[in-house]
Design a protein around this nucleic acid. Sequence first.
DNA 1: CCAAAAGTGTTACGATTACACCCATGG
DNA 2: CCATGGGTGTAATCGTAACACTTTTGG
Lengths: 273, 273
Amino acid sequence: MAHRSTIHETLTAVFQVRRFPETVRAGESARDREKSGTGAPISRSGRAIAARGRGNDPLPRCGPGERTELAVLLWERALDPAKGTWSLPGGRLRENEDLDTSAARQLAEKVDVRELTHLEQVWVFSDPDRVPGDRRIASAYLGLVPLTAEPELPPDTRWHPVSDLPDMSFDHGTVVRHARNRLAAKLSYTNIAFGLASDTFTMSTLREIYCAALGYDVDTTNLQRVLTRRKVITPTGETASPGRAGGRPAAVYRFTDSEIRVTDEFATFRPPA
Amino acid sequence: MAHRSTIHETLTAVFQVRRFPETVRAGESARDREKSGTGAPISRSGRAIAARGRGNDPLPRCGPGERTELAVLLWERALDPAKGTWSLPGGRLRENEDLDTSAARQLAEKVDVRELTHLEQVWVFSDPDRVPGDRRIASAYLGLVPLTAEPELPPDTRWHPVSDLPDMSFDHGTVVRHARNRLAAKLSYTNIAFGLASDTFTMSTLREIYCAALGYDVDTTNLQRVLTRRKVITPTGETASPGRAGGRPAAVYRFTDSEIRVTDEFATFRPPA
DNA sequence: CCAAAAGTGTTACGATTACACCCATGG
DNA sequence: CCATGGGTGTAATCGTAACACTTTTGG
C-alpha cells in the first residue's frame, strides 16, 4: 500500500449579504419569478453600486427583480480533481501558524482581508477519503464580510447565494451548510451581526441583514427593541435622509462592540408563524 | 531549525455524574481544594457502589457528606513532559480512521467503551506550541457515560469533579471547560442528557443529573413537564418503590431516543433567580 | 395632502419558573 | 397517623411576536 501523507487544511465559508437578480425557478413555480427575474442578471444599477462603494449605510433596498440574500465566496476549479466544481477558499496549514492564522492567510488570496470582520472555527472534517489523493483533514471556518464591502475578486472567484449553490467540490457544500447554521444560531444570542453590517446603518438595513442571514422575516420594530435592550446596538444620534420616495428620516445606529460577544445566553429569535 | 513533525491527536473529556465527598469549604479557596480535592475521590461508600453497580435506576440520593457532581475522567502522567499533571485520554490519529473513530479507540484504553453513550467533536486546539516537542493539533471531544456505569479504570486513572480540577497538563483544563460548556448548552435544546442517565430512571434522579451537569438547581416538576411536552422522555408505566424513608413511589421514565437529537431549537433552561 | 418610510405603544402569546396543595407509602 | 418523597394544578414572570397608530418627509 502506497504511503499517503496527511495534511491539514483550512476551508472558510465567507459570507456577505448581497443582492442577486431574482432566480428563475424553472419548471415549477416558474412564471411569477420569471417576470422580473431572468432579464436583469448583470444589471445592478450603477447608482446602487456607487452608493454601496462608500463606507457607510447605503440603505440597500430591494429593487424589483432583486433579492437580498446571504452569499458565500467560491472559486471554480480549472483543473482536476473535481474540475469545474466550486470550492471554498482555503489551503494547507503551515508549520508555525495556528489554524486561525492560516485561515486568514489563505483568504488573503481571494479577498482583501482587511474587509474580513470575523473569523471562527466551525467544524473538522476528517474522513480519510473526503478528497482523492493525499489525506486532507479540513478545519472549517466561518468568515464574515460587511454589507458595504465590495472587494476585488480574482477572475475565478464569485459570490453565490447560499440558497442556490452550484456544483460543489468534495464536501464543501456540507461545510457551507454547517457554517450557515452556525451563523444563524449565533445571531440570536451574540452580536455576530456586527460582522455583516457596515459601520453605521439604519434599522431597516439591519433588518435586511437579519432576514437574509436567518432566512426568514424579522420585524424591524422588535429587532430594534431587542438589540437596544441588550446594548448590542447604540444610536449614533444622526439620522439618514430618506430616498426620493420620501418618508421619515431614519435614526442611524452602530454596533456597540466590534468583536464577538455573547449578549444574551438565553435568547432565541424565532421564525414567524 | 530542526524539522518538527506535525501530528494530529484527539483529546476527550469524558463526563459522568458521580458522587463525591463534600469538599471542606474551609478558610479560603486554597487549602480546602487541596485536601479532599486531590486526595479523596476513592472513598465512596461500598453500599453506594453496589447499589449503583446494577443497570437501572438506583436513585442516587445525596447522603450527608456527599455531593452529586459532574466528573471528568483523567489520568496522571508518570513521566515527563508534565510529569504529575493530569491529562485527558486521547492520542494520535491513525492514517485510516476519522477523528470520531480515533477518539473512541483511544478511550478504549481507559474505559469500557461499551459504556460510552455519546461522543462529539467540540473544538480544535492548534497553537503550534501548545505542547513541547513535536507539534500536536488536538481535536477535542465530549464523551458521556451514564450514571449507573461503574467502569473499571487503570490504576493511573480517576474521576475528578469538574468544579475542582487538579493540576492539568498543557491546555487540557481549557478543553474540559469547553466541553462542559458545550454539554450545558446542549442540555437545553437537545436530548443529550440520555447520555448521562441510565436506561430508566425517576424524575428525581434525572433532576440530579441536570443539576450536576448544569451547575445550578432545577425544579423536578418543571423538568418533567418540559421534557414530556417535547417527547424527550417517555413514561415506562412502571413505578419505583420508595426507600426506607417511605414516600410515594415514583414513576419510571426512559429517554425516547438513544441518539442525540435537537428537540427544541428555541429552548433555553435558565438558572434560578 | 397623500403616499412612503420610520418610530412608538400596546396587546397577545408562548414558555418557563415558582409555589401551594394533594397523593401514596413505610414505619 | 405522620413524616417523607412524589405528582398535579395554578399563578407569576419574562421575552418576543404582532400590529395598529403616530411622526416626518418628498412630491
